[in-house]
Computed example of a mutant assay.
Amino acid sequence: MYGSLFTLSRGQVWSLVEAKIQHFQKPFIIMGDLNQVRGWAEKLSSHRCTILGASAFNELIFRNRLVDLPSQGVWYTWCNNRKESDVVYERRDRVLASSSWVAAFTHFF
């Protein structure tokens, strides 16, 4: 899955995802570049400001009982390629699993 580059459009993507999730009968995962961080723990920047879209993304995860699977290797998956105090790193790539997937694949952890 690929999340929109535009914060306002991401809300529409989350709504579409949530509508599809309601119809899934089997365990599932959602994987890809979702273009959204969940909070400051997933962002490294010298400029502290509100992280737009984080609350809507977290609500999607909580409402649908999704599990944000732990990553291995490089934590930050995106960089704006700027220098010094203007550089920003973010964790945008992730795998979200349904709780039934986590229950079915306990050996993952």
Rank of each mutant, 00 (worst) to 15 (best):
Y2G: 09
Y2V: 12
G3Q: 03
S4K: 09
L5A: 13
L5W: 07
T7P: 01
L8S: 06
L8N: 10
S9K: 14
G11S: 11
G11D: 11
G11H: 14
G11A: 09
S15V: 10
L16V: 09
L16C: 12
L16N: 14
V17G: 04
V17M: 15
V17A: 13
Q25A: 14
Q25E: 15
K26N: 15
K26A: 15
P27Y: 02
I29C: 13
I29K: 02
M31V: 01
Q36G: 08
Q36C: 15
R38C: 05
W40V: 01
A41H: 12
S46I: 02
H47C: 14
I51K: 08
L52I: 11
L52Y: 10
L52P: 10
G53H: 04
G53A: 04
A54Y: 03
A54P: 00
A56T: 00
A56F: 01
L60M: 12
I61Y: 10
R63P: 00
R65F: 13
L66Y: 12
V67S: 09
V67G: 03
L69P: 03
P70C: 03
S71T: 14
Q72I: 13
W75R: 00
Y76R: 00
W78K: 06
C79M: 06
R82V: 01
K83L: 13
E84M: 06
D86A: 14
V87W: 00
V88S: 02
Y89F: 15
E90S: 05
R91L: 04
R92F: 12
R92W: 08
R92H: 07
R92Q: 04
D93V: 11
V95K: 03
A97P: 03
A97Q: 04
S100V: 03
W101K: 14
A103H: 07
F105Y: 13
T106S: 13
F109W: 11
F109T: 07
F109E: 06
